[in-house]
């Protein structure tokens, strides 16, 4: 497995986090080191993994509750237009 610039670019694209040219080398090195250090984990042999259950009867009842903080939530919107949240348009429209 090669942890290289191509992979790093791919991860940056997926996570919407970019790196400056000046820090790229440093990140590449440290990530490479960490991945190598952690790759020991792949040596483990498979077995089923147990997780805990949440019972049907204890699930949340279907009752609607109006939030008291809607105005404050809207106050946190960076840009608001007629009660809608305003967001820049998508470039690569899918």
């Amino acid at each position: 497995m090669k942890f290289d610039n191509e992979l790093l670019n791919y991860l940056c694209g997926l996570s919407k986090v970019s790196l400056k040219e000046s820090e790229r080398e440093e990140f590449l090195l440290s990530l490479k080191e960490l991945v190598e250090e952690f790759s020991i984990i792949s040596n483990l042999e498979d077995e089923p993994v147990e997780i805990e259950n949440s019972e049907y009867l204890t699930l949340r009842e279907d009752i609607s509750i109006n939030c008291n903080n809607i105005d404050k939530i809207k106050d946190n919107f960076p840009f608001i237009k007629d009660d809608f949240l305003e967001v820049p348009k998508i470039l690569n429209e899918e």
Partner: peptide, 16 residues
């Protein structure tokens, strides 16, 4: 940056 906190507004959603 879309619903709360700091937002670096740019021309597109992706860039923002």
């Amino acid at each position: 940056g879309i619903r709360y906190g700091a937002r670096d507004n740019a021309n597109s959603f992706e860039d923002t």
